[in-house]
Computed example of a mutant assay.
Amino acid sequence: MPTVQQFTRRTMLSATAALAATRVLRAQDVGPRVATLDWALLETLLAIGANVVAATELRQFRQVAIRPDVPEGVADLGLRGTPNFEVLRFARPDLILNSNFYAWADPLMSRIAPVETHSIYKPGESPYILAEQATRAIGARLQLPAAHRLVEELSTRLDHYKDLFARGDRRPVLPINLGDARHYRVFGSDSMFGEVLKRLGLANAWTGATSYSAMAPMGIETLASMPDAWIVLIPPHPEDAFATLTESAFWRALPAVLENRVLTVGSINPYGALPAACRFADFLAEGFSHVRNG
């Protein structure tokens, strides 16, 4: 029985690791002390070398987003929905960056430091374009030239990958995340992953409704309705879901499985910004390269 092609960050191309768009910059010892509740803004701040002093759910962020690295000195504010404002106060931020997801906290946080909003996920708008705008605006606000480089180098990188994928089989791609062995979340054209597929010249196999990121859990049986697609599994998955699913008769009978058209990539923040977009593109490029050359 064909096996699932599995790739981790350790298998990434050396050229990919060297490109500046995924380079992890150490937080500066100077410059404004910045805090945020939003993970997309957090990964953006870390990627451009901002002096981040406080953020939310850092343990989970490290497990889900993986990169950029979070310096040990960053204070953990607890849950995104119920952040610890006393810890935020003790972190002494000069500036707090927030998004529309946590706008309810603005009045409370504004008592601690000025609050600026940069939203990346809005219904009907491109998260990739909003991420570019936010990255440039934050870079200008914090006087960090790395923000401009991140935007430009990722754009160049996606153009390069697009040329590579143009020589592929042109099959549609279905990016999903397992909820359990019987359900999955699918990422449509209006998600960050969907936006990356579009910029790579790849069709998204999912043409149904979404909610500007991911569709509510779908029954695993719906995978059979997209027999021509590449299936891209994006962790994190529940601990036993992947094993249970891949051992099932239904899974083994799927055309994508029979024809080795399944990729399991590394964990990515599904509500991420440009660093998440870059990570997804890198994994696709490396995964498909292994399939072609394997």
Rank of each mutant, 00 (worst) to 15 (best):
N177W: 06
W206A: 01
N177V: 07
S213L: 14
Y184K: 07
T222D: 10
G188T: 06
F242S: 06
L164W: 12
H183I: 06
L174I: 05
F187Q: 05
I176G: 09
P175T: 07
D163Y: 11
R167T: 13
S191D: 04
D282W: 04
S191H: 05
E239S: 14
F187V: 09
E259V: 07
F193D: 00
V186W: 05
L223A: 06
A214G: 13
A273H: 03
R170P: 07
F193Q: 03
V257L: 08
L158R: 04
M218V: 12
A256C: 06
G179Q: 13
I231N: 10
L154R: 06
E153S: 12
S155C: 10
S213M: 13
Y271H: 15
A277I: 04
E239T: 13
E239L: 14
R171K: 09
F280R: 03
W206K: 00
C278E: 12
S225I: 13
A166Y: 05
R199K: 09
P227C: 09
L274V: 02
T156M: 10
L202H: 04
I234T: 12
M218W: 11
F165S: 03
T246C: 04
E221H: 12
R170E: 12
L174R: 08
S189M: 12
A276D: 04
P227E: 09
S155I: 08
P236Y: 04
A249T: 10
A166C: 10
R185H: 15
I268D: 01
L263R: 02
E247H: 14
G219H: 11
A241Q: 03
E239N: 13
L174A: 10
